[in-house]
Design a protein around this nucleic acid. Structure first.
Lengths: 357, 357
DNA sequence: GTTTAGCACTCGAAGAGTAGGAGTGCTAAT
DNA sequence: ATTAGCACTCCTACTCTTCGAGTGCTAAAC
């Protein structure tokens, strides 16, 4: 009666009850009833009291009933409250830490492989789908750019970026450009672009980089255009998804329909990539770059993922260059466990990236 | 009685019956009974006669009963007979041809992308999982090899192969090698290896390619070793799988268990790659390079694919360099349709590869 | 000898009915 | 505010039954 309406704060006991409901449902996959709650957690009250509390929690939208005479399951909002203020994230056991460290193989030469490794490990450890976004390279700058002739009409643009990443692209060029001409162009472009962040490089920047007048203009223009597309392509987002088949092992997706929708959506990886990127954008606006992004159930704006949760963390290639790594699992998951797993994988990944340099 | 026992040849009517059973089962997904057969195909005999024929076909192992009082379904052997001698493969309709051609986008610069495109198209058209093996490059030879310094301790080995493929690998090198030293090494190695097929290049070949004595031997040896690993890596097989989620749409995999096994196996792509490569090896031994490889049900030596069929064709990058493209679908598929689809995709891919050069 | 009609039998799929039980909300007493 | 008690709900699992498609076999017909 005397309580505020708009920003209803849960009292301590309600929090306890919600906490217990989430824990129980996550571990048993059964709607939890007042009786089960009394039996498994030591509330000093009767089941009737709990029933009242649960009725209120339901009215407030934290839990819901699958049908009239069943126990309660957490709603999206319930999970959200759990994640935001109820759970405690503790460290992984030494064995788990070891398993992860052993699994992320550092005997690779490219960051990309390291990231893939970390992603595979994450999926294996959690049993869910894991994903990694390639580093967002727009803030990184060119340290080298070479255009190599491959054969008449084809050249390879090789770019080395400040984050230590190497990108390249085969491009088509006019047939009759000579090696020397190409070398000149390559040097001029490199000289002009070195040190520039990718997102500041426009077609104009590239076109104005060569002042040599010996090369016929149309030829030059085409080469420069191709170089530009190569640079833009280096900046493109890639996503790497791993462990889709593991979703079929989960009771949450035992109904073919759900599984189908889920895998269908995940198969369009560019869509997922776009979404993750958007999420990242939101987080950055709010200045939450270093923390986790957690989306639960309906909060995910992707069809087919209504029963999933999405958790990602940020790894760093360098100060200004980062990507995301995380998982997509069922809403009904051990959030604190999974978060610490992601956290540890992220940390391990960051360390091994540093070592690689 | 008077017939041969060992190589039992089916008489015409038995062939007709088997043909009809396969067709019917493929289109309805219901075990086929004698009555259904009479109704839908015009056999000029009674159902009783067909029952006798079917009993014999069963005794010979071409068809089988899911349970005592059900119709018959083709056995692996039945499908095999159907594929080998009963079906006729006809051309795709112009619309289908167009759909495929339109889908394989040729506005890409690298063969790899073209192959990916073709694979995606194939999955979309058939509704099954499609796959492509990267070209087997061992027979192709180096036309260029450059080692570029990226930063102290890191270099990029770029290889251009006769098939028009570009491969590269970042390798670690001793910190204190200078640009000039590296340039010398790179040129010497390139000169020595150009024109050699990949499978003839050994560590020794690479090590003996530099005769320059100015570079301290341990340094040189390390660089050459890394170059060698890069070359070997270029020769590695890659597989590209597409459309796994489509398998969940098929009634054949409606039981979660089957689907799980299947996707589980497919998730280990290197295993699938190994198997396809082995198949290709067998086909080459028998001199069947240019035709299709078809494996049905138990013929596939991969766990979880007992209810699948595997069909691949060969695409060519150049005379001696080829890879495979094909599908994995349920045993119960329209073989002739699928084969013509694969065939047409393969042809289209081959043409577009030529254009790309 | 091959084909066919007839028939008894098998066995899975589908539906109806039933019992059980976990859980709820409400009321009245503590 | 808490709790015991109770009537009520409704899902789950199980059994029982029916239905029908399909089979193999036998004996007659061609």
């Amino acid at each position: 009666m005397g309580k505020g309406r708009r920003v209803m704060q849960l009292d301590d006991r309600k929090k306890q009850v919600l906490h217990a409901i989430v824990d129980d449902y996550v571990s048993t996959n059964e709607p939890v009833g007042s009786k089960a709650l009394i039996e498994r957690y030591d509330f000093r009250v009767s089941s009737a009291t709990l029933r009242n509390e649960m009725a209120e929690l339901e009215k407030l939208g934290y839990i819901e009933k699958p049908h009239t005479s069943a126990g309660r399951i957490p709603s999206d909002r319930g999970y959200r409250e759990y994640v935001d203020s109820l759970m405690t994230v503790d460290q992984l056991s030494p064995e788990e830490q070891l398993a992860i460290q052993a699994n992320i193989d550092e005997s690779v030469d490219e960051v990309t492989d390291l990231i893939k490794n970390a992603t595979q490990t994450l999926s294996k450890q959690t049993g869910f789908v894991s994903l990694a976004m390639s580093p967002r390279l727009r803030k990184s700058f060119l340290t080298q750019l070479k255009i190599l002739m491959i054969e008449p009409g084809k050249a390879l643009v090789v770019m080395v970026l400040s984050a230590g990443v190497v990108k390249d692209k085969v491009v088509r060029i006019p047939n009759f450009i000579t090696d020397e001409q190409m070398f000149k162009i390559s040097s001029a472009v490199e000289k002009h672009l070195t040190g520039k962040p990718l997102d500041e490089i426009t077609l104009v920047t590239v076109e104005t980089s060569v002042t040599d007048t010996e090369i016929p203009n149309p030829l030059l223009k085409q080469v420069l255009y191709e170089a530009y597309t190569a640079i833009k392509q280096a900046d493109e987002l890639n996503i790497y998804l791993e462990g889709e088949h593991r979703m079929l092992e989960l009771p949450d997706f035992a109904s073919l329909g759900r599984a189908r929708e889920l895998l269908g959506t995940l198969s369009d990886s560019s869509m997922v990539a776009g979404y993750v990127n958007e999420m990242q954008g939101c987080a950055e606006e709010k200045g939450q770059e270093d923390t986790y992004m957690i989306r639960i159930g309906q909060e995910i704006a992707l069809e087919g993922l209504e029963d999933c949760s999405f958790i990602t963390a940020t790894y760093n290639l360098s100060d200004s260059v980062s990507g995301n790594i995380g998982i997509i699992g069922p809403k009904r998951m051990e959030y604190s466990k999974v978060i610490s797993q992601i956290d540890f994988v992220k940390k391990t990944l960051n360390e091994k990236i540093k070592k690689l340099k």
